[in-house]
Each structure stands twice: as C-alpha cells, then as structure tokens.
C-alpha cells in the first residue's frame, strides 16, 4: 500500500507545473462594478498604476488584473476565464484571440516597446554593442522564438545580420532577466521597459538599430464582457494623455 501511495505521488508530480491564478468574477449582488483586465506580464507596473487612476476617475469601479504571458492569457480566455479587456504584448496573440472569436470590437495599439541589451551590474563581459553578443565566449540568453520577446530578438538578428548563438532560449523575459541578474549569463536581450523595471539589478546597453524592430501592444474589449461600455471605456482610456504619461514613465513608446 505504501509503495502504491508513492507511485501515485510520483505520477502527480509528473504534472508539476501550475497554472497562474485566474481572478474570479464577483457575485452579481456586489454593488460595486468591477472590470477584469487580462494584460501581458510586461505591463504589470504601468497597468497597476493606470488601474488606480482609472478607479479614481470612474468613482467606484474596481479594476482587477491578471498578468501573464500573452499566449497563456489567450488560452485562459478561450477556456472561459472572465476577462473584460485583453491587452497583448504583440499583434500575433491579439490576432490569435480575434481568430478564436474572443474579441468584441476593434483592437487599438496603445504602446510600443523595443529591445535593449541587459547585462549584470558592472557589465563584466564589457558588452558595448549588439555585435559583442556574437562572440562565442560571451554567454548570451535570449527568449525562445515562440514567445514575443524571442520573435523580436530573431527579427533584430535578421535586420542587423548579427548571428547570436545563445546558451539558453528562455520561456519569458523574467527567465532571461533571472539568468542575467544572477550572473549566470553575461548578457540577455529584453525590452527597454524590463531593464527600466529591474532598476540597479541589471545594466542596460542600448544598441543601434534597436528602433528598427518595434513591438506594438494592442488592447481590445473581450466579446461578452460583463459591461461592454465599461470595457470599451478602459480601451479608450489607455490612449488618453494621463495613461500615456504613465506608460512613458515605465519606458513604453507611443503607438
């Protein structure tokens, strides 16, 4: 019996990774209106701030966020997670959501982001340009091409002709930053906003031609949103100077 229990435990651990939490819909009797925004992980800082301002502006609307990778968010909405607004880190995932008939109304671009080289503090490998990343002695970590930051990195390689041989292709920007912050990697390619958010834990090295690969963030109201006008209002709100100034402060570019 004991052995059987162990085998069961082992089988359970085979499915070891957990899903990110999905916020629950408030009960209908709640007097307060809530707006549930599913947003790309890179928007966490900026959207938390914008959410506060939106709550102040709308007097009593409560904004709830679910931050995760854009592809995860699309999958969650597809499985019926209660989202009112979807803000994606790239056009590809917004297109995926539209193709799956998850979006009501038009998608609007509200921010842009470009890549920057991140190194551990003090830049131990003396990275000064993108070309330095092609040195085989430099341990470079990129995002895998399946995720938006990796797709952007691949485009940068293509337009500049610099061939980077990464020691690891990570799942997300956070994983790339983790390897850089811990000093395991000499450099990584992440978004300008990620370098800014990491503060003194990483050193940013801007490179020429970064502006040639611009990542655009679209936002749209989700089909069957609880309150469609409120969802549409939030989408429009992101284009306002108030929200745009917050996004700029976090390093995002104008759409």
């Amino acid at each position: 019996m004991k052995r059987l229990a162990l085998i069961v435990a082992a089988l359970l651990t085979l499915a070891g990774c957990s899903q990110p939490d999905v916020p629950e819909r408030d009960s209908d009797s709640a007097p307060q209106k809530t707006l549930t925004v599913f947003a790309a992980a890179s928007l966490q800082g900026a959207f938390t701030e914008i959410g506060k301002r939106f709550e102040d502006d709308t007097h009593g609307v409560k904004v709830k966020f679910n931050f995760a990778g854009s592809a995860d968010l699309v999958a969650q909405i597809e499985q019926g997670a209660p989202a009112d607004v979807f803000a994606s880190a790239d056009a590809a995932n917004m297109t995926k959501a539209m193709d799956a008939d998850l979006i009501g109304g038009q998608a609007q671009d509200f921010a842009t982001n470009t890549l920057e080289i991140a190194t551990p503090p003090g830049n131990p490998a003396d990275i000064e340009s993108l070309k330095d990343l092609s040195d085989p002695d430099v341990k470079v970590v990129l995002c895998a091409s399946q995720v938006p930051c990796g797709a952007a990195a691949a485009k940068v390689e293509k337009v500049t002709g610099v061939d980077i041989k990464p020691v690891s292709e990570e799942q997300s920007v956070t994983d790339v930053l983790g390897k850089v912050i811990s000093g395991e990697a000499d450099a990584g390619l992440v978004y300008v906003t990620d370098v800014k958010a990491a503060g003194s834990k990483v050193h940013g090295v801007p490179f020429r031609d970064a502006g040639r690969v611009v990542n655009t963030y679209p936002v749209a109201a989700v089909r069957h949103a609880k309150d469609e006008s409120l969802a549409a209002y939030f989408v429009d709100y992101l284009a306002r100077p108030d929200a745009q100034s917050v996004l700029a402060a976090f390093g995002f570019g104008k759409p």
Binding site: T13, V141, A144, V167, E169, E170, D175
Partner: peptide
Amino acid sequence: RALGEFGATITFAGSL
C-alpha cells in the same frame, strides 16, 4: 520523477 522534472531545470539549467 526525473522524467517529469520541470521547475528546477528551467530555473537552474536553462532551455536549449
């Protein structure tokens, strides 16, 4: 258990 290992690998070893 080794076959199913995910979290420690992605954190410690990377992904290539």
